[in-house]
Simulated assay, not measured.
Amino acid sequence: MKCILERKQLALSPPSPRKLSHTRTVVYQGYDREDGLWDIEAELTDVKTYDFKVPNERLFPANEPIHRLKIRVTLDSRLVIQDIATSMDSIPHPECSGAPHGMHKLIGCTMGPGWRKVINQRVGGEEGCTHLREMLSNMATAAYQTVPASQWHRREMSGIPQPEITSPPYHLGQCHSWAYDSPTTQRAYPMFYKPKLADDALT
């Protein structure tokens, strides 16, 4: 019975009567390039179900993207940015086209711990765009999903032995499932598993 109740809690309750007003779609894709590098691409679109107009700007008809923004980041195997490109296909203000002017400042930076701080330092506030920063922030997760797995796959397909894992992956200790005392960690990385002490279990 307990398991059934816990499973029900994972589902959304039926919504109140409503109608769709706005849809934001963000898609992240990771590419394994033939030259040994990786491309991480992000695309963000904002669409409303009704005609929308910012004061003194043009009218956006219903279902026409108000935002359609794209970023491509090229990374090496250490997640260091080698190149970055931005496309502003649909924007609400003409001035938005200048928002990516500082994106090149991210070249040479690493998508790893402290990435959000790096974004704010290089393209924060008026030096960039809120939406581009949002995309950049989550591109690190897509990069982490892409590059290590692609490296493993490359070695597997080439018959190269996988290297010994000597340090905990970044994701350990960052969520419930990957807690150091979690059964997930015990199964996947038994060398880093740390069972809870009896005193901890009582608190």
Rank of each mutant, 00 (worst) to 15 (best):
N138D: 15
A143L: 04
E127F: 11
E134T: 06
M135Y: 01
H104E: 08
Q121R: 14
H101K: 15
R154M: 05
S158N: 13
Y144V: 03
Q121D: 15
G98C: 01
C109V: 03
G128S: 06
K105L: 12
V123A: 07
M135V: 05
W152N: 10
N120Y: 05
L106C: 08
V123T: 08
E95D: 13
C109A: 14
S137W: 06
M139K: 06
R116D: 03
G125M: 08
P148F: 02
A149C: 04
A99W: 01
P100Q: 02
P100A: 11
C129N: 12
T141M: 08
G112V: 00
M103T: 11
T130I: 13
G102C: 02
M139I: 08
G128W: 00
P100V: 07
M157Q: 15
T146G: 01
Q145E: 13
M135E: 06
N138G: 05
P113T: 11
T141Y: 04
H131P: 11
H104M: 07
R122E: 15
L132D: 00
A149Y: 05
N138Q: 14
V123C: 07
C109E: 14
A140G: 12
G108K: 10
A99V: 00
G112M: 07
L136V: 09
P113N: 03
H153M: 11
E156N: 08
S137L: 11
M103P: 03
A140K: 04
L136D: 00
L106Q: 04
G108D: 09
S137T: 15
S137A: 12
A140H: 01
N120A: 12
R155E: 07
M139C: 09
S158L: 15
I119C: 00
V147F: 05
E156I: 05
A143D: 08
S97Q: 14
W115R: 12
E126T: 15
G112D: 15
N120D: 15
R155V: 00
C129G: 11
M111F: 06
G108C: 07
A99N: 06
N138L: 11
M157I: 10
R155L: 14
G128T: 12
M157V: 13
E127I: 02
T110S: 09
T146I: 10
E156T: 14
M157P: 00
H101N: 11
T130M: 04
E126V: 13
R155C: 03
M135I: 04
A140T: 03
N120C: 04
L106A: 02
E156M: 12
E127V: 08
M139V: 07
H131E: 12
G98R: 14
M135R: 06
